[in-house]
Design a protein around this nucleic acid. Structure first.
Lengths: 190, 190
DNA sequence: GTCTATAGTAGGATAGAC
DNA sequence: GTCTATCCTACTATAGAC
């Protein structure tokens, strides 16, 4: 637990406000007020509003990408892989609660190379998940339904976890993971 | 198929842009350009940018509310009710594709009475769905897991349909409804 | 590291001509 | 019903003092 730098504090506060109101609706004055300083002072630590968004989204996207690649390339069974992906999502969501809002709703405001970079990560992630589901269908461990519907059904729940998790912090993590995983596996299992 | 009024055209174009970029990031100049007119001309048909948002969100929210109330008060079995709710979501999403983006991501920018009105409809909708799921668990037709997780799992998928549906318009509606319903019912059925 | 002051731009909205 | 011109406000970001 090192002391956060001022830059980290700014990014953390920004994530919270972006989640509540969206990137475009949050002004640098809002952000400064949240930190108890003036807007101009922010620029001693960050170079632009865009830099904050990029930093938020790209770091979380990379976390998902690394985790998914490990699972995809592992020797686990198909259903174990799906289970690991679900756990990955829960872990990343718990660790980056607020940033998930920007990743889901403000990624289109990324600029320059960051946008195609993000889109490429997102596509690759989806493609890996799609392959896992398809091989599950082929081997009979996953229900023989349209793989796109199965993919969408699971992904939509995982991607929306960030909206729901904060309200339920009374449930302990073990129960959450177990029950969540059971529900999602039930929806795709053969 | 009556000819749409200019106001309806404006609202429709706005829904499309709000979906792509979010309410706050779309300017009246953007919207005017989309319609091939100047920003000032918009005000001959609408009184403010907010009015557009409110009109978009409230009308769809009311459609959901009316549909849910009918289902909730019907004599159907619990699983049939869940099935009807899924069909309601698919139908409303297909009919109001773009507006669903605002409903999901820009509701917090509603002003005045519209915000509490929307929140009340949303809460009542969720509460009705929660009751359906709970009585299913009580009677044994729905799996004996945490009802909040079941509710969230189904709702998150239904609420995200609008993001996914437009990409899949090759699938015909019958297949979509059937497969979607099967997948979601599988995730909660006992 | 934060401040005040301010440049420069872009936003929502109105007035009044055509 | 649309236009041009414009008001007023608020935005991101910079300059320079402390």
């Amino acid at each position: 637990m090192k002391t956060p730098t001022r830059k980290e504090e700014i990014i953390k506060s920004a994530a919270k406000l972006f989640l509540e109101r969206g990137y475009s609706a949050v002004t640098m004055r809002d952000l400064a007020k949240e930190l108890g300083i003036k807007a101009a002072s922010l620029y001693n630590h960050i170079s632009s509003k865009h830099e904050i968004l990029e930093s938020l989204i790209i770091s979380v996207a990379e976390e998902f990408t690394v985790g998914m690649n490990q699972i995809f390339l592992s020797e686990l069974s198909t259903l174990e892989k799906v289970e690991q992906v679900i756990h990955l999502h829960i872990d990343v969501t718990v660790k980056n609660q607020d940033a998930l809002g920007s990743l889901n709703n403000d990624w289109m405001h990324l600029e320059g190379k960051a946008l195609p970079y993000f889109e490429q990560m997102r596509n690759q992630y989806e493609e890996n998940f799609r392959q896992i589901i398809k091989s599950g269908i082929a081997e009979g461990s996953i229900a023989a339904r349209d793989p796109e519907i199965l993919l969408f059904s699971v992904l939509s729940t995982l991607r929306t976890l960030y909206l729901w998790y904060p309200k339920k912090n009374s449930i302990d993590m073990q129960t959450l993971k177990a029950d969540m995983t059971a529900t999602m596996l039930a929806s795709i299992r053969a």
